[in-house]
Simulated assay, not measured.
Amino acid sequence: MKKILVPILAIVLMGCQEKENVNNDTAQQQTIAALLEYTVVNKIFQDVGNNGGDAVLSSESSASGKSSVKSEVDGPTITVEPFDLTSFPKTITVDYGTGVLCQDGITRKGIVTIVSTGWYRSVGSKHTATFDNYYHENFKVEGTHVVENLGLNQDNNLEYGVTIADGKVTAPTGVAVYYSENTTRTWIAGSDTPLNIWDDEYLLNGNQSGVSAAGVEYSLTVEEALHFILLPRGIESGILDVDIADLNDVKINFTNNTITIFGQIYPFSS
């Protein structure tokens, strides 16, 4: 995502010689920087949700004797306590050790601990993830990530409520971005292959908020559902309305890869 910054700032900086324009440009730069940080943080926490669901599904399959628990050879070490099909709550520990290069090309390290009140497909089940020295690439992840199974919607797709509290992502430089979320995630593809996370697709609706590394506060509301795919990882479509600092007319459009700021439209590469 870093490659977005240069072409956008090149456009933003053109002609900003007068003081008023310079001040306006500073606001634009802060807005763009905050939005770029958001795209990274959002993807990291969506990744946590998908990998957490995958770990719970793998644990159920292992406890039923349908497969063995993953090992460090091809993924993280997953342990389940108690290791049976019926006793809950369960503590599922996903240990990436000092680093595992996963199928999507992302290296993860550290431990994610998930406390589950039921299996992932069970309506009403909750899955609470916390982090112990966990890294997504070189970004340290902290906070509490809760997923609740809300059951089938009218299209017969499973829906999950997602809450992220005290979310924090620290970059290798030491700067931190804070993040929270209250959304609904709809599983629209890949549910028939529960042990293969990489063919999953889902829609995200709801609200998100955060504070950038520079202290800029923002909130985001999904105008058109964000369509996430896992491999290749990305957002296929969707529109976010953004309130950031004193601005309330900012949009991120993943359908045509544009950002609208101060009524001007800038392209970006996803």
Score class of each variant (00 low, 15 high):
residue 248 N to R: 06
residue 262 F to A: 14
residue 245 A to V: 05
residue 260 T to H: 01
residue 255 T to A: 03
residue 236 E to S: 14
residue 227 H to P: 02
residue 235 I to S: 10
residue 247 L to I: 13
residue 261 I to H: 02
residue 248 N to W: 02
residue 230 L to I: 11
residue 235 I to A: 02
residue 242 V to H: 01
residue 258 T to L: 06
residue 246 D to A: 14
residue 244 I to V: 04
residue 262 F to E: 09
residue 237 S to N: 13
residue 232 P to K: 08
residue 247 L to E: 12
residue 251 K to C: 04
residue 251 K to I: 14
residue 253 N to C: 05
residue 260 T to W: 00
residue 236 E to T: 14
residue 259 I to Q: 06
residue 225 A to D: 09
residue 256 N to R: 06
residue 245 A to F: 08
residue 235 I to G: 10
residue 242 V to N: 10
residue 254 F to A: 11
residue 242 V to W: 06
residue 230 L to R: 13
residue 235 I to K: 14
residue 228 F to D: 00
residue 247 L to R: 15
residue 239 I to D: 00
residue 253 N to E: 09
residue 255 T to S: 13
residue 244 I to A: 02
residue 257 N to K: 15
residue 260 T to C: 00
residue 234 G to Q: 10
residue 229 I to H: 14
residue 240 L to H: 12
residue 252 I to E: 05
residue 230 L to Q: 11
residue 250 V to N: 04
residue 225 A to P: 15
residue 255 T to W: 05
residue 243 D to P: 00
residue 250 V to F: 11
residue 251 K to R: 13
residue 231 L to F: 07
residue 239 I to M: 03
residue 239 I to W: 03
residue 234 G to N: 09
residue 246 D to M: 07
residue 252 I to P: 11
residue 227 H to K: 13
residue 262 F to Y: 12
residue 240 L to S: 01
residue 262 F to P: 01
residue 250 V to E: 10
residue 249 D to C: 07
residue 243 D to I: 13
residue 259 I to W: 07
residue 237 S to R: 13
residue 241 D to R: 02
residue 238 G to M: 01
residue 258 T to A: 06
residue 235 I to Q: 10
residue 254 F to L: 08
residue 231 L to M: 12
residue 236 E to H: 11
residue 235 I to F: 08
residue 226 L to I: 12
residue 251 K to N: 09
residue 243 D to H: 08
residue 229 I to K: 14
residue 243 D to R: 04
residue 247 L to M: 15
residue 236 E to G: 03
residue 233 R to S: 11
residue 225 A to Y: 03
residue 252 I to F: 10
residue 237 S to H: 07
residue 227 H to C: 02
residue 227 H to L: 10
residue 235 I to L: 13
residue 242 V to Q: 07
residue 259 I to N: 05
residue 251 K to E: 14
residue 231 L to I: 03
residue 237 S to C: 06
residue 247 L to K: 15
residue 245 A to Q: 11
residue 237 S to Q: 12
residue 253 N to A: 06
residue 260 T to K: 05
residue 249 D to K: 07
residue 241 D to A: 15
residue 258 T to P: 05
residue 242 V to A: 11
residue 236 E to V: 15
residue 228 F to G: 00
residue 254 F to Q: 06
residue 254 F to S: 10
residue 242 V to F: 00
residue 256 N to W: 00
residue 227 H to T: 09
residue 232 P to E: 10
residue 226 L to E: 04
residue 260 T to F: 01
residue 225 A to G: 03
